[in-house]
Amino acid sequence: MTSTPTAQLSELGVSIWLDDLSRDRISSGALAALIESRNVVGVTTNPTIFAAALATGTTYDEQVSELARAEASVTDAVFAITTSDVAAASDIFAGVYESTNGRDGRVSIEVEPGLAHDAAGTIAEARALWSTVDRPNAMIKIPATREGLEAITETIGAGISVNVTLIFSLERYREVIEAYLAGLEKAHAAGIDLSTIHSVASFFVSRVDTEIDKRLVDLGTPEALALKSKAGVANARLAYELFESSFATDRAATLLSAGGNAQRPLWASTGVKDPSLPDTLYVTELAVANTVNTMPEKTLEATFDHGVIAGDQVTAHYDDARAVLSSLAELGISYDEVTALLEKEGVEKFVVSWNELLDTVAAALEAAR
Rank of each mutant, 00 (worst) to 15 (best):
A94E: 14
G105S: 12
R135E: 12
S131I: 02
A126N: 05
P143Q: 11
I156R: 07
S161Q: 02
E175V: 02
A94I: 10
S108C: 13
E98I: 14
G148H: 02
D104V: 04
E171H: 12
G105W: 03
I177D: 00
G191I: 11
A126R: 08
D134A: 12
R106G: 04
A158K: 09
V111R: 00
L166M: 06
I160D: 08
P113T: 13
I123L: 01
S108I: 08
L166A: 01
A190Q: 01
T165R: 03
G95C: 10
R146Q: 10
G121P: 05
I177H: 01
A124W: 07
A187E: 08
Y180T: 02
F93Q: 01
E150D: 11
E154A: 12
L166H: 06
I156W: 10
T165C: 00
E125N: 05
F93N: 11
G159K: 12
K141W: 04
V96R: 04
A126W: 09
E154I: 15
I167M: 07
A158C: 07
A94N: 06
A120V: 12
E185R: 03
R135Y: 07
A138C: 08
R103D: 07
A151I: 00
I167C: 11
P136Y: 11
A151K: 09
D118P: 02
W130G: 03
E171R: 15
V111T: 04
G121S: 02
S99W: 06
L181K: 12
R106Y: 02
L129F: 12
A187C: 02
A151M: 13
L129H: 12
S131D: 11
I123V: 06
E147L: 15
A119P: 02
L129I: 07
N137S: 09
T145N: 11
I156E: 10
A151C: 08
G183A: 09
I167D: 01
F93D: 12
L166Y: 00
T132L: 11
N163P: 09
A126C: 03
E171Y: 01
P136V: 07
T132V: 10
A144C: 04
Y97F: 13
G157M: 07
I160P: 04
Y97C: 05
G191N: 04
S161M: 08
F168R: 01
Y97A: 09
G105C: 09
G114T: 13
W130P: 07
A187Q: 13
H188L: 13
L170M: 08
M139A: 13
I152R: 06
A187T: 07
G105R: 05
Y173K: 08
S99G: 10
N163C: 00
A182C: 13
E171C: 04
A120T: 15
H188E: 15
A190P: 06
R174N: 02
A120E: 01
A126V: 09
L170I: 15
N163D: 03
T155L: 09
A124N: 04
Y180P: 06
D193A: 10
G159Y: 08
D118F: 02
Y97Q: 02
L129V: 00
S108E: 08
K141P: 10
G157F: 03
A144T: 15
A138H: 06
H117E: 01
E178F: 10
E98K: 12
E98H: 14
E171M: 06
G148S: 06
P136I: 15
